[in-house]
C-alpha cells in the first residue's frame, strides 16, 4: 500500500517537474522569490473542499425537496443557507488576500534539532484567523490579529548541517465554514545556516580541565590589554562597568590571553574518526571552549580560524564547520 502511495507520489512529483519546465508561466509563482512576498489576487486560488462539494449536493437536495412540496418557507431557508455558504468564499479570500510575508528569522540551530523559525507578516487592518501553513509534511495553524504581531513561530526539523531552505510553503485557509479552500504558494529565497550536530558526551577539550579551573579562580588577576566597545553577544562578566560609567556606551575588557597552542582544535589531529564524527566533535569543543571562555583556534584542512574568543569568532568557527564539504 505504502509502496503504491510512494510510487504515486513520485509520479506526481515528476509530472509537476515537467509542468514547471514546460509551463513556466503557469507555475512561476512556485519558483523562489525574494522577500517580501505579497499575496495579491493573481496568486490566490480557490476550490471547494470535499465537504464543500458534499454540502452543495445537500443544498441541491434540500432545494429540490422544498420545490417539490411547493414549500416557500423551506425554500427561503435553503436559499439563505446557500447564500451564506457562497459568501463564505469571499470571506475566505479576504482572509488570505493582501497578506505579506516580510521576514523570516531563524534562531541558532544544530543539525538533528528542530529549527525554530519566526515568520513576520506585515501588519494588516483586518483579522486573519485560521490560517494554515504546510512546509513539506509539516502542518501549522495560526491566526493573525489586526496590527503588528510578534510573528509566527514554527519549528522545522533540520536533519543536515549546512545551508537549509525552508522551501515551498503552502499557505491556505478554509475559513470561515470549511466549504472552500483558499490557497497560495510561497517560496521565499531565504537560506538558513544549520550548524553541525554536537557530539554528545564529547571528550574534554585538548589539554585538560586543571588549567580551566585555574583561570576561573584567577578572578582579578586576569590581565587585559585594553577596552573596546560592547558588541552584542559579549558575555556580561566581561563588561567593564566602572570604565563604562565614564563613557557613552558599554565597554568590554579585551583580555590578552597568551595564545596557548595546545588549545588548537584541529581536524587533522582527530584521526581515527570518520569525517562527520570529527565535525561533530569539533563543534562540541568550540561550544565548550566558548562557554568556558577559553581562547581557541580551529584548524580545518583548508582553513585556520583564530585563535580568538567571542561571539563572532564562535560563529565563524561554527559556520566553517557547517559548510565543510561532505566526505569524499
Amino acid at each position: 500500500m505504502s509502496a503504491l502511495g510512494a510510487r504515486f507520489q513520485s509520479t506526481w512529483q515528476g509530472l509537476l517537474a515537467v509542468a514547471e519546465r514546460r509551463l513556466p508561466a503557469l507555475t512561476r509563482l512556485r519558483a523562489a522569490e525574494a522577500l517580501p512576498i505579497r499575496l495579491h489576487r493573481r496568486r490566490i486560488y480557490v476550490l471547494p473542499t470535499a465537504f464543500g462539494i458534499g454540502f452543495g449536493a445537500l443544498l441541491v437536495i434540500m432545494q429540490l425537496g422544498a420545490l417539490n412540496y411547493a414549500n416557500n418557507a423551506a425554500l427561503l431557508l435553503t436559499c439563505f443557507l446557500a447564500a451564506a455558504a457562497w459568501m463564505s468564499l469571499f470571506a475566505g479570500f479576504r482572509t488570505l488576500a493582501g497578506l505579506e510575508l516580510v521576514a523570516i528569522h531563524a534562531a541558532e540551530c544544530h543539525a538533528g534539532q528542530s529549527l525554530p523559525l519566526t515568520l513576520h507578516f506585515l501588519a494588516s487592518a483586518r483579522p486573519r484567523p485560521s490560517l494554515r501553513l504546510r512546509i513539506g509534511t509539516h502542518l501549522f495553524a495560526f491566526a493573525l490579529a489586526p496590527g503588528d504581531g510578534p510573528g509566527i513561530s514554527i519549528q522545522l526539523p533540520a536533519p543536515r548541517r549546512g545551508w537549509m531552505r525552508p522551501g515551498r510553503m503552502k499557505l491556505w485557509t478554509e475559513q470561515p465554514l470549511g466549504l472552500f479552500v483558499v490557497w497560495s504558494w510561497i517560496n521565499p529565497r531565504t537560506s538558513i545556516l544549520v550548524y553541525p550536530a554536537i557530539e554528545e558526551s564529547a571528550p574534554p577539550l585538548p589539554h585538560g580541565s586543571g588549567q580551566l579551573g585555574e583561570r576561573f579562580s584567577a578572578g582579578d588577576g586576569e590581565e587585559f590589554s585594553g577596552l573596546r566597545e560592547y558588541r552584542s553577544g559579549d558575555p556580561q562578566r566581561r563588561i567593564a562597568w566602572k570604565a563604562s560609567a565614564r563613557h557613552d556606551g558599554l565597554l568590554v575588557r579585551e583580555s590578552e590571553v597568551p595564545v596557548d597552542d595546545n588549545r588548537v582544535l584541529s581536524y587533522a589531529s582527530l584521526h581515527g574518526l570518520e569525517h562527520e564524527a570529527r565535525i561533530r566533535r569539533l563543534t562540541a569543543w568550540v561550544i565548550a571552549a566558548d562557554a568556558a571562555m577559553l581562547s581557541y583556534a580551529l584548524e580545518l584542512p583548508e582553513l585556520r580560524i583564530g585563535p580568538g574568543l567571542g561571539h563572532s569568532h564562535r560563529h565563524a568557527c561554527l559556520r566553517a564547520l557547517a559548510l565543510m564539504p561532505d566526505a569524499p
Binding site: Q63, L67, N68, A70, N72, L75, L76, C79, F80, A82, A83, A84, W86, M87, S88, F90, A91, P176, L177
Partner: peptide
Amino acid sequence: LLGLGVPLAAAAFLFTPRL
C-alpha cells in the same frame, strides 16, 4: 455571512422557477 447573503438569497428565492 447570513447578512451578506441576503441579496443572493432574495434573488434565488424570487427567481428560482417553481415547479
